[in-house]
């Protein structure tokens, strides 16, 4: 677990997207286009939600939009590096600006 955290910190530094402030309204639209197909509510048809439901076992919400602990940097890490079966997303799919917008949308205000 600690090793994973150290690795995560290393990746955060390399994403280079922290400086941009995002637009949560556009972030919602981008999220619905790119993220919802895997992360929408309903584990049966949404593999991202299913994977997080299995991983957290109720400790945290499995649906990303219900999380209270996400930050733009953490979102950027997973989008640009992928995790397990989720591949990274290229800049022609989600631009740095759109990534910052998703981060703003998923960050609790």
């Amino acid at each position: 677990m600690y090793k994973a955290l150290i690795l995560l910190a290393g990746i955060l530094i390399s994403t280079g997207t922290l400086a941009q402030s995002g637009d949560p309204v556009n972030g919602k639209a981008v999220y619905e286009h790119w993220c919802s197909p895997c992360h929408a509510p309903g584990a049966r048809k949404h593999p991202g939600t299913a994977a997080l439901e299995f991983l957290y076992k109720g400790e945290k919400p499995a649906v990303l939009e219900q999380r209270l602990d996400l930050t733009p940097a953490l979102v950027a890490t997973f989008v640009r590096n992928g995790v397990k079966i989720m591949p990274p997303f290229r800049k022609t799919e989600i631009s740095d600006k759109e990534l910052a917008d998703i981060g703003a949308y998923l960050t609790p205000r």
Binding site: P37, R44, K45, H46, P47, A51, I85
Partner: peptide, 8 residues
């Protein structure tokens, strides 16, 4: 994307 349950 439901097929990605395989390998999840």
């Amino acid at each position: 994307m439901s097929v990605f349950q395989l390998g999840n």
